[in-house]
Computed example of a mutant assay.
Amino acid sequence: MNEYELKVFDEIEDWKRKITRRSGMMNRVSKKAQEKINEFIPEKVHELMTESIKGMVKATLFGSQLTTNRKQAIGLSLEERDELVRIKISSFQKTAIIEGAGTGAGGILLGLADFPLLLTIKMKFLFEAAAIYGFDTKEYEERLFLLHVFQLAFSSDEIRRNTLAVIENWEQRKKELVEMDWRKFQQEYRDYIDFVKMLQLVPGIGAFVGAYANNNLLKTLGETAMNAYRLRILQKAQ
C-alpha cells in the first residue's frame, strides 16, 4: 500500500466503527414503533408495497444504467477517484435539496412524489460512484452489490451489521446471493426515512425539512458508497 491507501484504510476502519455503533435512543424508539405498526399492516399490503418498491428500484436501475458514463475515471488513481466522487456527492446533494424543498413546500400530493424522485437520485448516484471506482454495473453481481450498499446506508443496527459483513466478504458471499431480499429492503428503507418524511408533509416547515433531510440522506449514502467501494479496491490490492 502507498501512503494514500494507508490513509484510506484508516478512514475505512473509522467508518466501520461508526456504522456498527449502537444507534441513539430516538432511532431505537422510532424503529420499535415502526415494527409495531408493521405488525398491524395486513400481509397483502406488505406484499403490494414490496412489489411496488421492487418495480420502482428495478426501473431506476435500468434508467441509471443507460445514462451513466462507465469510462469516466479510466486511468485515475484512487486519490483522484475519491476527489471525483466527493464532487459527485456535493452535486447530488444539491439536486436532492432542491427536490426536497420543492416537494416539501407542495404539501401532501407533492410529498408523495418525493419518494420515487429521491430514490431515483440515490440510485443514479450509486451508479456514478460504481463507475468512478471501476466496477461495471452491466454485471448483475455489481448491481446486487449496489443494492447492498443502499441497504447498508439506510437500515437498522442489526441489518446494518449483517450487511456490512456481506460487503466485507463480497467475493465469497456474492456466490450465495441470487436475489435481493426485497421485503427486508423496502421495510428497512421505509422505516429509516418514515419519521422525517412525515414531517416533510407538515405545512410551513415541509420545504425546510425536505431540503435538510434529503441533504443528510445523500451525505449518508455518499459516505457509505465511497467507503464500501474503497474497501473492495484495497482488498484487491492486498
Rank of each mutant, 00 (worst) to 15 (best):
K197F: 14
R86P: 00
G102H: 02
M26D: 10
E11C: 05
A101C: 06
L66F: 15
I19Q: 12
P42F: 07
G134R: 02
E43S: 03
F150S: 02
E158C: 01
E141L: 05
L117C: 03
E47Q: 12
M26T: 04
Q65S: 08
L218M: 11
I132C: 05
N227Y: 14
A59W: 10
N215M: 06
L234K: 04
K124S: 10
D157L: 03
K7F: 12
E3M: 11
R230V: 01
I193F: 14
A33I: 08
T95E: 09
Q186V: 08
G210P: 06
F185G: 05
D181F: 12
L231F: 09
Q200K: 14
G204K: 06
L48P: 00
V45M: 15
I74M: 05
R21L: 12
V202H: 15
E142D: 07
M226S: 10
L78K: 06
E11H: 12
E128Q: 06
A237H: 09
V57M: 10
G75Y: 04
G63D: 13
L177H: 03
R70T: 04
L147D: 01
M123Y: 14
L48Q: 12
I12H: 15
S91H: 06
K197E: 07
L146G: 01
S52I: 03
S23Q: 07
L152Y: 05
L78M: 08
R28I: 01
Y133D: 00
V57Q: 10
A101I: 01
M56Q: 10
I74R: 14
E39F: 15
R190F: 11
F185S: 06
G104D: 05
I41M: 12
I159N: 15
D136G: 03
K174C: 04
T60H: 11
G24N: 07
M1L: 08
I53C: 13
E5R: 07
I19C: 15
T224Y: 13
Q72R: 06
S52G: 08
M198R: 15
L146V: 00
I233R: 13
T50L: 13
G75E: 03
D82W: 07
I167N: 08
F9V: 03
S91N: 06
A131V: 00
